[in-house]
Design a protein around this nucleic acid. Structure first.
Length: 932
RNA sequence: GCCCGGAUGGCGCAAUUGGCUGACGCGAUCGGCUCAAAACCGAUUGUCCGCAAGGACAUGUGGGUUCGAGUCCCACUCCGGGCACCA
């Protein structure tokens, strides 16, 4: 009858706040009658299987099951094991099958920008068959903005050849093969999505350098959904910071497009996007991205020294680029393009903002001024954003300003900065722009912006934008435009581990979807499944491990045209594919007829949280590190499934809660190297390691900082309940918290004292009485229930636990005085403790004589009559300083409050003989005398 | 550089959302129990002045609004996170 110490085995936990927080809130919700599906993360099973396999030189499939079993043991050790959880193994053939099935839905869909949405707005996915019908019937034009050169003349469908028809349809698909510059990471032997590359140009996993390289890869058309992904954030109960991150990542900008005609090339226009169309008159040159398709067209055979516009005088030598002044334009441009494409993101970063570029030899005409302006190619313009070309307005854009200084290009002010701006730069008011130290990007009045058709002069920026955009629109030289930073999602990886694509290629290299009946496509057994790691400068294309499985790659199938030979797609899907829909599979994990039964899906996903707007998972607890990865990708897949009628809510996760991480003190020596934290000695605020002083700072627990604390010792010495309770008591769940082992004794004491208030440890007998609690204890009990209930609902477990401490402290007093605990208090205590410390609560519950488990008992309800007091103590202030305290009856009027306050001896003394200017009374709160 | 958070005792953190700052826990100090230590139990614990009663000062810094500011406004400092040549 000693205190029970539930424990487990082999525990390694990186950041268990989320697991335990999820479990505690799930238990609480279930006790309140919610239906709870407890889905541990798809890859929450410790090491990702593939990484584990590579580190241990084993086949991933061998390791996954033991990996999951290991995680189960860990969860059990934390007291997280209970029957509501369901799990699915990522190796489950059914899971492969339905992931591939969803991919086929995406592949066989297109985005109709004009289709009405049920909830208002436009643009949704539709089956590709409907597109084909529209094309055949002529209801839809056969030109396609997605790939403009497929059928530029709009030749009718019936006159197109089969190859063009097929290419046209493929270009509409939400999943498509594209040859374009991608993030190539030789260190991992695979390509990566933009979201998986860090700001300093390295892979998020493994921290290897990443290079840009054109490769043929699968992409998903997430950009089609950028408006809805942005707008629907309003429906969600998510942390504002995550919403902001998604907004920034999608990066919608509004502005205008404008056409600049290329001189000497009849009918060739360069389209630019700008958020500052009001500065069009100040465009003194243009820049194309190194990958811009028009480069080939416009570069002349000779440098145009003779034809340079008068403004530029002799062409500066620097314009010919950094590879020698004797190059012809084509050579200079080609070498520059090569130079730019070979640079890694890391090198770009290291070079800072230094502007490089080459003059293409061609000129364009500024549509407002008619001036000839040179066209450059430079890598500060990115092909992936806007149109891959810009009009450069050096006076009002800092990047253009720096480039113009580097290359001696004219800088013309078309917005007048305020006088204060000139003053702050020690310039005379109205000084010409080529004397400025930086571009002026603020608001001001347009100048130098008049031609014979339009004038902006005198207008503020917003008015000028509207005016010039209207003029561009009217003349056909441009239009209002919206651009986003979001790019299509690069979806293929050169790894063994991952779902194979349900795609084969025919003799003409056309991708063909496998029929549903041929799913799942399983990975072949291979002995060598490691990715091909290439040197950074190796020109060979990356080879996926599956390409080496010859017998698997070549297949003979009947796909409608009789038996034919096909070649399987050898890339695999990224880890995100599975995590994009696992929450749906958890609803119905053993279903072999569908990825989820529609009735089951509707039961769990629709409107259980009382908010009809978004639906989806009621509460999703997870880390903020997935803000623009999993949480964006899953929203995208879910919306496609929604559009195609496979799920019934527009969003996957209604309420998102980001748990914090457990950090720990880490120490660095003089060289900045981490030293083992457990061997650091503290003495009088100074920290030393092997006698040498070290610096202390906080960091995420882990191997790299040498500061991991394994909870093994904690649950061995104190039990899993104590560990759970400690982690929930450390502070708010959404904040990262430093681990401090010695703080554990506090919560352990709470459990031990509660246990002793129920059980006599010497005899094992209950010390519980049916007699009612005294009035004060009972009032405190109901107040505690009220507060704990509220705090649990908002996931504020730390303050809920504080209240349980207080109630148990009261119980200590009662037991000390009477030798017994009132049953009503003990039962409520056990119930309130149950989500937080399930083992001890269950044990107490059972000892109290209850048959069933405490897990399904409803959470206690407060008695409202116990929550109100007859009297309340309030402070009496004089000039805002507390000078006394008085008791007033609940609901007393102002007069009674003032009378009570004046009756206080000390207050009366201080008020004696002074002029009272005003009396502020907040009933039930305070009385304040304002005196002279 | 831009966008989010945050800063309260020796420490982790509370504060009914403008109304008694520091709940609860850790640590520390003193005491009890003990041959002794651990465990356990009790008391004290924001700082300063004071024997005490009591008083003054205190929520990163400097201003402001208010009868009253940890909370609201303005300017700044530091810490954490995210983004970053996005036209």
């Amino acid at each position: 009858d000693m205190f029970p110490y539930p424990s487990g085995e082999g525990l390694h936990v990186g950041h268990p706040l989320g697991f335990i927080g999820t479990d505690v809130s799930a238990r609480f919700m279930r006790m309140n009658g919610f239906n709870v599906l407890h889905a541990m993360g798809y890859d929450a099973f410790g090491l990702p299987a593939e990484q584990f396999a590579v580190e241990h030189g084993r086949h991933p499939r061998e390791t996954t099951d033991s990996n999951i079993a290991n995680m189960r043991r860990q969860l059990h050790a934390l007291g997280l094991g209970h029957d509501a959880r369901r799990s699915i193994a990522t190796t489950d053939p059914q899971y492969y099958r339905w992931t591939q099935w969803i991919f086929l839905q995406i592949f066989n869909a297109w985005f109709d920008e004009d289709a009405e949405l049920a909830g208002g707005g436009k643009g949704r996915a539709r089956p590709i068959d409907e597109l084909i019908t529209e094309l055949q019937s002529g209801a839809r034009a056969t030109t396609n903005d997605l790939v403009p050169d497929l059928n530029p003349d709009g030749t009718p469908w019936s006159e197109l050849d089969a190859a063009t028809k097929r290419a046209l349809i493929d270009s509409y698909r939400l999943a498509y093969v594209d040859e374009a510059p991608v993030n190539w990471c030789p260190g991992l032997g695979t390509v990566l999505a933009n979201e998986e590359v860090t700001a300093d140009g390295r892979s998020e996993r493994g921290n290897h350098p990443v290079f840009r390289r054109p490769l043929k890869q699968w992409k998903l058309r997430i950009t089609a959904y950028s408006d809805r992904l942005l707008d629907d954030l309003a429906l969600l109960d998510w942390p504002e910071s995550i919403k902001t991150m998604q907004r920034n990542w999608i990066g919608r900008s509004t502005g205008a497009s404008a056409l600049f005609s290329v001189e000497e090339h009849e009918g060739v226009d360069i389209e630019v996007f700008t958020t500052r169309p009001d500065t069009l008159f100040g465009a003194t040159y243009m820049v194309l991205a190194p990958e811009h398709p028009l480069l080939d067209t416009i570069v002349p055979s000779e440098w145009p020294d003779a034809t340079l516009a008068a403004d530029f005088g002799d062409m500066p030598v620097s314009w010919k680029g950094i590879f020698g002044a004797d190059e012809l334009p084509s050579g200079a441009v080609r070498k520059y393009v090569e130079f730019a494409s070979r640079k890694s993101e890391l090198e770009r970063q290291a070079e800072g903002r230094d502007k490089t570029g080459v003059f293409t030899g061609a000129f364009a005409t500024n549509p407002t001024t008619g001036a000839s302006i040179p066209i450059f190619v430079a890598d500060y313009v990115l092909m992936g954003y806007g149109t891959g070309a810009i009009m450069a307005v050096p006076a009002h854009d800092q990047r253009d300003f720096e480039f113009a200084q580097e290359f001696d290009l004219p800088i013309t002010a078309v917005v007048q900065p305020p006088d204060a701006w000139f003053a702050s730069h020690s310039l005379d008011v109205g000084a010409p722009a080529n004397e400025w130290p930086e571009a002026f990007t603020g608001d001001g009045v347009a100048i130098n912006s008049t031609n014979e058709h339009v004038s902006l002069d005198g207008m503020v920026v917003d008015d000028a934008k509207r005016r010039i955009t209207a003029w561009l629109d009217a003349t056909g030289g441009g239009a209002p435009a919206v651009t986003t930073k979001l790019r299509d999602w690069l979806f293929s990886r050169q790894r063994y581990w991952g779902e194979p694509f349900p795609i084969v290629y025919d003799a003409d290299d056309n991708p063909i979807a496998l029929p549903e009946s041929m799913l799942p496509v399983l990975l072949p057994e291979m002995t060598d499944f490691e990715p091909t790691i290439l040197a950074e400068d190796d020109p060979r294309p990356p080879e996926p491990p599956l390409a080496r499985a010859d017998a698997w790659v070549a297949v003979e199938l009947d796909l409608g045209d009789g038996e034919q030979f096909y070649r399987r797609e050898t890339n695999t899907m990224p880890q995100w594919a599975g995590s994009c829909w696992y929450y749906l599979r958890y609803l119905d994990p053993t279903n072999e007829q569908a990825f989820v039964d529609p009735a089951v899906e509707e039961y769990w996903m629709v409107g259980h949280h009382g908010d009809p707007n978004s639906g989806g998972v009621d509460l999703y607890v997870g880390g903020a590190e997935h803000a623009v990865l999993h949480l964006l990708y899953a929203r995208f897949w879910h919306k496609v499934l929604f559009d195609l009628g496979h799920v019934s809510t527009p969003e996957p996760f209604h309420r998102l809660f980001n748990q914090g991480m457990i950090t720990a003190a880490a120490y660095t020596d003089e060289r900045g190297m981490y030293v083992p934290a457990e061997q650091v000695v503290e003495q009088g605020g100074e920290y030393t390691y092997e006698g040498a002083p070290v610096d202390r700072h906080d960091g995420k627990m882990g191997k790299s900082l040498k500061n991991a604390v394994t909870p093994d010792d904690i649950y061995r010495d104190y039990g899993a309940d104590t560990l759970r309770l400690y982690e929930m008591f450390m502070g708010p769940l959404d904040a990262s918290r430093p681990w401090n082992t010695r703080d554990i004794t506090g919560v352990h004491t709470l459990l031990r004292r509660f246990w002793r208030n129920v059980v006599d440890e010497d005899t094992g007998a209950l010390r519980v009485t049916d007699a009612p609690a005294d009035d004060e204890t009972r009032r405190q009990l109901h107040r505690t229930i009220d507060k704990v209930r509220a705090d649990m609902g908002t996931l504020e477990f730390n303050t809920a636990i504080a209240k349980l401490f207080e109630l148990n402290n009261r119980l200590n007093v009662v037991v000390a005085e009477t030798g017994e605990s009132p049953l009503e208090v003990v039962e409520a205590m056990a119930l309130m403790l149950s989500p937080l410390a399930p083992h001890i609560a269950e044990e107490v519950w059972s000892r109290l004589g209850h048959e069933g488990t405490i897990t399904y008992e409803p959470f206690p309800e407060p008695d409202p009559s116990q929550l109100v007091d007859d009297e309340v103590e309030i402070p009496v202030q004089i000039n805002g300083k507390v000078r006394g305290k008085v008791r007033v009856a609940t609901g007393a009027d102002d007069t009674a409050h003032e009378a009570a306050a004046r009756a206080d001896v000390k207050v009366a003394e201080l008020l004696d003989g002074v002029e009272i200017r005003k009396v502020i009374i907040v009933p039930g709160r305070m009385v304040n005398f304002v005196v002279a």
